[in-house]
């Protein structure tokens, strides 16, 4: 399974992606969780105490491409090799690799950016599941940071702004001929909101995650919701999203 979480900033992508990755890893799958946001995020939701580190600088080398300065993974280092070597192990056995985070003035992310992109094009295949958390507001997630995914989960809150982003992503997905794209209604307070999310995005609803005050508390404490409230509403809803994907059941 290769899934990518997309949607408006603040819709809950990281919280759901982090929980999803750990729940999946907890079933015995070998899971690689990828964070391609230049700002810190997924590590918190996974409960991993490494907010910054990406690929070490020396893994990326500069080369000259017809007069243009470009970067690639160091000779001899494959994407699979980079994952084996530099992904960190987190709770439930989940493996985690992130784009190195922005820090300070003149922070140059060119190396990180290219190195990480090369890893995305050469991810480990057999025996691995990939769970990706994409930056909010990505213009073309289907062709860029999410190009490895076979399923996109568009995370949408039942607000007009979030729905508008969801619609826009649905339109871009159609243009990009993206593989399976489904929507997840997040922070749902009333059941009719789920239907509205489906109608207004034109996407199939994979499932719904209720508004969860315990998630708000976990976010404030900087803890993974799965550690804070393992049997709570968010964890339960994510487990059922995963079941729907794994059994290949038709989403509601």
């Amino acid at each position: 399974m290769r899934v990518a979480f997309v949607g408006k900033g603040g819709a809950g992508k990281s919280s759901l992606a982090g929980t999803f990755a750990r729940v999946l890893a907890g079933t015995g799958e070998r899971v690689l969780a990828l964070d391609s946001d230049p700002m810190p995020g997924l590590a918190f939701s996974l409960g991993i105490d490494r907010v910054d580190e990406g690929l070490p600088d020396e893994t990326v080398e500069e080369y000259n491409d017809d007069g243009h300065r470009r970067f690639r993974l160091r000779q001899g280092l494959t994407g699979v090799g980079a994952v084996e070597r530099y992904a960190v192990q987190g709770p439930d056995g989940v493996h985690f690799l992130q784009l190195g985070k922005a820090h300070g003035q003149r922070w140059d992310n060119t190396r990180q950016h290219f190195g990480f992109q090369h890893v995305l094009d050469d991810l480990p295949g057999d025996g691995w599941s990939i769970v990706g958390d994409l930056p909010g507001g990505t213009r073309q997630p289907f062709m860029t940071w999410g190009r490895y995914a076979d399923t996109f989960l568009v995370i949408v809150e039942p607000t007009p702004a979030s729905l508008l982003t969801g619609r826009r992503l649905a339109r871009l997905a159609a243009t990009a001929q993206a593989p399976r794209v489904v929507v997840v209604a997040n922070k749902v307070r009333e059941s009719e909101e789920v239907e509205r999310v489906g109608e207004r995005t034109g996407l199939r609803v994979l499932g719904a995650v209720p508004f969860d005050p315990e998630l708000e508390t976990a976010d404030r404490l900087g803890r993974a919701v799965l550690d804070h409230d393992p049997q709570g509403q968010t964890a339960t809803a994510v487990r059922s999203l995963m079941d729907v994907l794994l059994t290949g059941m038709e989403p509601s």
Partner: peptide, 12 residues
């Protein structure tokens, strides 16, 4: 917002 993630981004 007073969440760990948001404060971390804000601090940067």
């Amino acid at each position: 917002e007073p969440t760990a993630k948001s404060l971390e981004v804000g601090r940067r």
